[in-house]
Design a protein around this nucleic acid. Structure first.
Length: 253
DNA sequence: TCCCAGGTGTCGA
DNA sequence: TCGACACATGGG
């Protein structure tokens, strides 16, 4: 399987907030047991987590095939070359939702701190725990009320399970009804939490990247950028997005 | 000290 | 529908 493990784990996806790293060895508790992943000639991991890791790293995604689909122009060509082996990860939906609520108007270092402070025994606090506990120790700032309100709505019956059976448009509409979840966070949740590879989250980096490289520097609405991305990269727009995101930020691992 | 961060909700034109 | 602004906190 083609993978740059360090890049994948530290590219601003959910794992950067919830996995630990020690000399290129990534670890976390899964079901109370320590799961480790590292690269040594090839990808290696704690044996009993084979199927978990395959799902987490989306082993079924054949990157060469995806590159053929998304490598449509010079900019993407450079991004794909520079970040070869970057994979989209598949994470727990609630963990991803909580993480990207913490991401709002925040930087990656502090997002990790915020999320880590909401973890107990290797797991993020459940919606019930978030709603019932005093979580001011996490210093989420204005995001605290977003997280509490979203937790309350989920407990009140706004199903996160049903999203698995929804089409993309319906899923976005469903998610953005939650307080504090707008288009950007919803797209991240669908991409990293539910595996909707067509999701195209538009943040400050992507907006700048897209307007500069595909719209001649002209101010462009997010809706138009989204239409362009779907049109150009189709069902792999999410992969295109992640490569452009790293390229825009100049990520180097 | 100052600007900014993987944005969102709200309000007024 | 669109622009402006507040929102908490801390990294660089």
């Amino acid at each position: 399987m083609l993978i740059d493990l360090s890049l994948t784990m530290k590219s601003g996806q959910t794992p950067e907030f919830v996995w630990d790293e020690n000399n290129g060895r990534f670890s976390r508790l899964v079901g109370g047991k320590l799961c480790e992943i590292w690269h040594e000639n090839r990808l290696r991991f704690t044996p009993e987590f084979e199927s978990y890791v395959a799902d987490f790293l989306r082993a079924g995604d054949y990157l060469e095939k995806i590159y053929k689909k998304i490598n449509t122009d010079e900019v993407m060509g450079k991004a794909v070359k520079k970040y070869r082996g970057l994979r989209i990860t598949k994470n727990d939906p609630w963990e991803t939702t909580l993480s990207f609520i913490c991401s709002i108007n925040n930087n990656i270092k502090r997002i990790r701190k915020n999320v880590q402070s909401l973890m107990i025994n290797g797991k993020v606090m459940t919606p019930e725990e978030i709603l019932n506990a005093d979580i001011s120790f996490a210093r989420l700032g204005f995001r605290q009320k977003f997280l509490k309100k979203t937790a309350e709505m989920i407990i009140g019956g706004h199903s996160m399970e049903e999203i698995k059976t929804m089409k993309y448009d319906e899923a976005i509409e469903h998610l953005t009804k939650l307080h504090g979840i707008g288009d950007k966070v919803a797209n991240c949740v669908l991409l990293f939490g539910y595996g909707f590879l067509e999701s195209f989250p538009i943040d400050t980096w992507i907006r700048k990247m897209m307007t500069e490289n595909y719209f001649g520097g002209k101010k462009t609405s997010d809706e138009k950028i989204t239409d362009f991305a779907f049109d150009r990269w189709g069902k792999y727009a999410g992969y295109a997005n992640q490569y452009l995101f790293c390229y825009a930020r100049g990520v180097r691992v």
